[in-house]
Amino acid sequence: MFEARLVQGSLLKKILEATKDLLTEATFDCSSTGMSLQAMDSSHVSLVSLMLRSDGFDAYRCDRNLSMGINLTSMTKIIKCSSNDDVVTIKADDNNPDTVTFMFESPNQEKVSDFEMKLMDLDTEHLGIPETDYSVVVKMPAQEFQRVCRDMSQIGESVTICCTKDGIRFSASGDLGTGNIKIAQSANVDKEEEAVVIEMQEAVTLTFALRYLNFFTRATSLSGQVSLSMSPEVPLVVEYKIADMGYMRYYLAPKIED
């Protein structure tokens, strides 16, 4: 028996929004620790890693480990049938292993819906992600990062991110010319969410495809802040924390400079 109840049901909508450009199907792994998902996009350039810890749910029961192969397009259709203030419960029954049920309850309990969705047999690879001490970790407002990625993609297909102790510089070039956006570390801020904080061991310069970074910024509604972790010649990690529950992380392989 698996049952996970989330009072803040709209969180699932945000999570699906944050994966929709990268994934069409994925396996949700459920255990006593929580629900997790790891999947590469079809081009194997990026990897999505979601963690929702069991203690972040309002009720959580997982008697045995369970892998649910989910068509995310179908799940999105079903989750759209919930209202933003609905309580969502995800249920899977050991006696009926080919389906998962989503139950939506209105806050006043006057409307209760349930939708049973067919599960898929997915043959997905699970990648081991090594613990890494990154050369640079930048925390910045998620909306600011979204804006930078959007603006840079007006100029070119790739962005070069150069991070020093002074700040982080985003550069793009294309047929129309070049663009640079430099964001300095915050001197002092009243609100933690508005801060730009750079933790640096050594300066790093890496180039990434903006197409993917823009897909990642679909997660902006999940968190006020985003963190970018970089080391030379390894994938960038873009992390959005999900308050009191876990995270949505994206890994993106760098581009090789010409």
Binding site: V45, H126, L127, I129, Y251, A253, I256
Partner: peptide, 14 residues
Amino acid sequence: DKNQMKISSFFQCD
């Protein structure tokens, strides 16, 4: 894109 590296060349299958 020949300059784009694959994520699978960094992380191994479990």
